[in-house]
Design a protein around this nucleic acid. Structure first.
Lengths: 198, 198, 198, 198
DNA sequence: AATGAATGAGTATTCATTCAT
DNA sequence: GATGAATGAATACTCATTCAT
């Protein structure tokens, strides 16, 4: 029991995600995280420098995962542009949706963290954004995506929509059919709300 | 001279918006708000019950304003459906954009507040949503808007996109042309990213 | 009671001296100081920045007092050199002896504080030392004090002896006759332990 | 190979002296001592009961050494009284001076330790004091030392002066010529600051 | 004997809120 | 209404010590 059992670090992270999602970062108590992780308070500080470090690692893990998945996608040549775009939406959707508590934490805390110390946020976020923009630019070059759309604005548009929807689902899962949300995001981001000839 | 007392209440609210935008709700100090409002700490508690009440009033004022403006719009019969939709976007855009600090506060704190005590959030928010959905349903009935789109999902999609973009602009105004953001929101929400016959 | 009664700051300092003397700086609890001062924990932080600031003020007050008293003495021309020296010893003796708890705090904590942040120690200490050395140099010039003695070494010699003796008295007052200590310090520092013609 | 185990105990003590001198007892971290001694944290508790025990052993070793050296001196009949006194000063001086970090630890921590648990301090200290007082009384009996001097006060006077000077030298060795310090201590304690016929 | 991950008691400090003036 | 000194509950974090291996 004195020996690292190989999952304490992960147990703490999982517990922290639940507590952060439930109470918000500021009202989350370290003692509560320790209790939920079935670990002593001191052990938390063996694996994480402080409270901020815990949330940093949550974001790092999520955006790291998103980045690596997108990287695998961006180089595929077996997909048409639209298929690639849909696959990207699916991938983001699946990642966010895998753990609803993580989704809530992201939706609630990311903006504040980015505001506070942009430079100390996980580098995977910027790398992910870059890759996403590359896909959009590729679509524009292939004359599939509208060249009049500002790429930077589009990614905020899309991620903002995503964030709100995933958070809404995570908060009230009974109110949203996940498949419907997925389908609507894909459709709206590609065709918009108006009826027109596709 | 006694009539000017209304000032204090408003001064406090303005100061609070700045401090909340700059530091985030939790790191915002009441003493800092008092200092910025040029008012004693005690005076804040004459006009507001507590810290939560201050942020409540910020949201109440903003969503009240959005609601009243949308109400004026929803009943206009001189506008086509698309014109009405564009006017709605413009109105939301202008309201959010009027004060960038307010935009930041909304973007950062609303989700958390909604999560914590949904029932004690400003009623204007739900009323605004209802009105917005009415416009969308009207568009669907008039066969202008796509009937396959889930109205509830659409409003999260749109407001989420809005929130992220306005916050991005408010945080780094040098990075975004406000008119471009406005145009892109209108276009993307109506036509999406794909090139097609409109 | 909400109004500053003019002595809270001093009550805290007095209480702190007692608690520091009794338990040592590190084992002294802020809560204990608050209790002894009959003041809330929060009030301590109204008057002092932190625990270090409290002890700083204790030293500042004591050395400030010593400095001002020595300043008054150094310029007196109505005293012979030996009388002036004896008066200096008496003054230091009286100041240290006035409050035995202060004496203990000085004896126990000064070295450590000086070591840690020499520059942030009370400036009165250096000013006092300078003045003391001036008296010694004056004595040398007047051929009363031995010119072969290193002034810097002498002041460490004298103050070190003082510190130990005052601390010993403060710790076990029953073991030491204060007048005897005073007389012996004067004598030893002037004539030493050997018998010789004075 | 099993014989070398004595090293560890000593390595720890040496490391502890450095860390205590540098950081002070309370800010000294056991983990730092372990690191400097090139030993695991657990090993420290194999050789020492706890942190207090480590510092106890430091004092025990030093005062033990001083006691044994003084014992060898006190019985010598080949020395005049003044020679014996000078030899005593030299011996104390050499012992303190041998390791400047030890000198700093003594100067900073001894008073506090004595205050806290007089009875649990190393017995060598009291035995050393007794021996020292015996020398002084011997000097008085031989009409070499002044009989009006209180022996107890004198030893505090002398050791206090010693402590301050050795500490000052250990802290700022560039400021003090060790030989000059030694000579001044001898002279001042025997003849004082005044000029007179010796 | 040696290790170092695990422990959890212990405390300085913060700051929203109060209320005597 | 206005003030701001006073309050004290509440909590992140430290680190000496332990003990299973």
């Amino acid at each position: 029991m004195r020996k690292k059992e190989g999952n304490k670090e992960e147990d703490i992270l999982k517990a922290a995600i639940e507590v952060f999602a439930q109470a918000g970062f500021y009202d989350a108590k370290i003692s509560k995280i320790a209790e939920l992780a079935n670990v002593s308070i001191g052990s938390i500080y063996v694996y994480y420098q402080n409270k901020d470090d815990i949330i940093y690692k949550i974001f790092d893990k999520l955006w790291g995962s998103l980045y690596h998945n997108l990287e695998a996608l961006v180089n595929r040549s077996d997909l048409s542009m639209v298929e690639k775009y849909d696959a990207m939406i699916d991938m983001i959707f699946d990642t966010f949706t895998e753990n609803s508590s993580t989704a809530i934490v992201i939706a609630h805390e990311q903006q504040r963290l980015l505001l506070r110390n942009k430079e100390s946020f996980t580098p995977y976020y910027d790398k992910f954004i870059d890759l996403g923009e590359r896909i959009v630019r590729e679509g524009v070059k292939k004359k599939i995506f509208n060249p009049n759309i500002d790429t930077n604005i589009f990614r905020h548009f899309l991620l903002g929509a995503f964030r709100d929807l995933i958070n809404s689902w995570a908060t009230s899962p009974e109110e949203f059919q996940l498949n419907s949300v997925r389908r609507n995001i894909k459709f709206l981001s590609k065709y918009g709300i108006l009826i027109h000839n596709q």
